[in-house]
């Protein structure tokens, strides 16, 4: 049995769609359910029947920043990035209106975007890992799109995003996650402390800044018919060092390793050498493993800070989302990754 439609949420969504010119006066919400994913955002699937737009319901996603978000990132920035991407060769959904008010029926600011066809891959599920391995061994449609889209992201004119997203160099990025870690940590962690010192001691020589997705992994893509149909989850986007995306992707975590397991493929998707060669050819940027490793460690530290935020909120009773408590079990694997990257 499906849950009844929340009338207040439906009305708020319709009002926003109408203000964006995406729904007529006779439109009605005929489906509204909360989806499982989303740690810092809540996600709702909507179906809107609109006789002025045709016989089939239009499908939308409502993306909400709840009060207990584990990331203090601005939803309006994410909306603006999606708007800019509509003119770029990066597949992404069209957005239809942003409501910045905190006091909404969704429990926070929200925007609406079209719901594209395709599904999300959960690289921690063995069956999804197997499907990606099949793609790699037979066709490589997902693998090819995955690297080509990253190259396209890194080729976006960063000037278009000036004033929309923050620009952070390596030191500023380390400082950002360190500040959050210090603010939210509940216990002292010697591995994490050593890792912060290590990344600062191994700062790579700078490269030209560009658009950085900040959370680039196959789980943040939609896959449809064996191809990547959309890149989602732009809330960690910055103008910064493109090697961050490569390093984050190189973490075993990004390939589905939890307390064990995980794919041998980069990000669960492609052979690492193949991916890096194709990326280098597409961007003209050499891929230097030593620099990538430092950014991988920084990626692990980012995850520690983000999940630590959720844990702190949970411990303080500010969120009842049990996944925030569950995330403590990710830490041992991240410590293992850090120890390996630091050459311990």
């Amino acid at each position: 049995m499906s849950a009844p439609i929340d009338a207040a949420k439906a009305a708020a969504a319709l009002e926003l769609l109408r203000s964006a010119g995406a729904a007529g006066s006779r439109a009605e919400v005929c489906g509204l359910t909360q989806l499982e994913g989303g740690w810092s955002r809540r996600t709702y699937a909507l179906e809107v029947a609109d006789p002025e737009r045709g016989p089939d319901p239009d499908r939308y996603i409502a993306r909400v920043r709840p009060a207990d978000s584990i990331l203090d990132t601005e939803l309006g920035q994410e909306f603006a990035v999606f708007e800019l991407l509509e003119d770029e060769p990066v597949p992404s959904p069209r957005v239809h209106g942003y409501e910045p008010a905190e006091d909404t029926p969704f429990g926070g600011p929200f925007f609406l975007m079209e719901r594209l066809s395709g599904g999300a891959i959960n690289v921690w599920r063995p069956q999804d890992q197997a499907a990606l391995r099949t793609d790699w061994e037979d066709g490589r449609g997902i693998a090819t799109d995955f690297v080509d889209h990253l190259a396209a992201i890194h080729a976006v004119d960063a000037g278009r995003l000036a004033g929309v997203v923050a620009e952070r160099d390596f030191a500023a990025t380390v400082a950002r996650w360190r500040a959050i870690y210090d603010e939210v940590k509940l216990v002292a962690d010697p591995v994490v402390e050593e890792a912060y010192a290590w990344v600062l001691d191994h700062e790579p020589a700078p490269v030209a800044p560009c658009l950085v997705h900040g959370d680039y992994r196959i789980g943040n893509c939609l896959v449809d018919g064996g191809r990547v149909s959309a890149i989602l989850d732009w809330e960690l986007t910055t103008i910064g060092d493109p090697r961050f995306d490569l390093g984050y992707l190189a973490l075993p975590y990004s390939a589905g390793r939890f307390v064990d397991g995980g794919s041998e493929l980069l990000g669960g998707v492609a052979d690492r050498d193949w991916f890096e060669r194709r990326y280098a050819a597409a961007t003209g940027r050499p891929v230097e493993r030593a620099a990538i490793d430092v950014h991988a460690a920084l990626g692990a530290l980012m995850l520690v800070a983000i999940m630590g935020t959720g844990l702190a909120l949970y411990a303080a009773g500010e969120t009842a989302d049990i996944r925030a408590a569950w995330s403590r079990f990710v830490f041992p694997g991240l410590r293992s990754d850090l120890a390996t990257l630091m050459g311990w």
Binding site: N122, W124, G219, F258, V259, D260, G261, V330
Partner: peptide, 20 residues
């Protein structure tokens, strides 16, 4: 990690990851 991986033996199946 080896200790936590033993959770597969507690009630069967994988320890389970998550989609973040």
């Amino acid at each position: 990690l080896a200790t936590l991986a033993a959770s597969r033996g507690v009630a069967g199946g994988r320890a389970g990851g998550g989609s973040r």
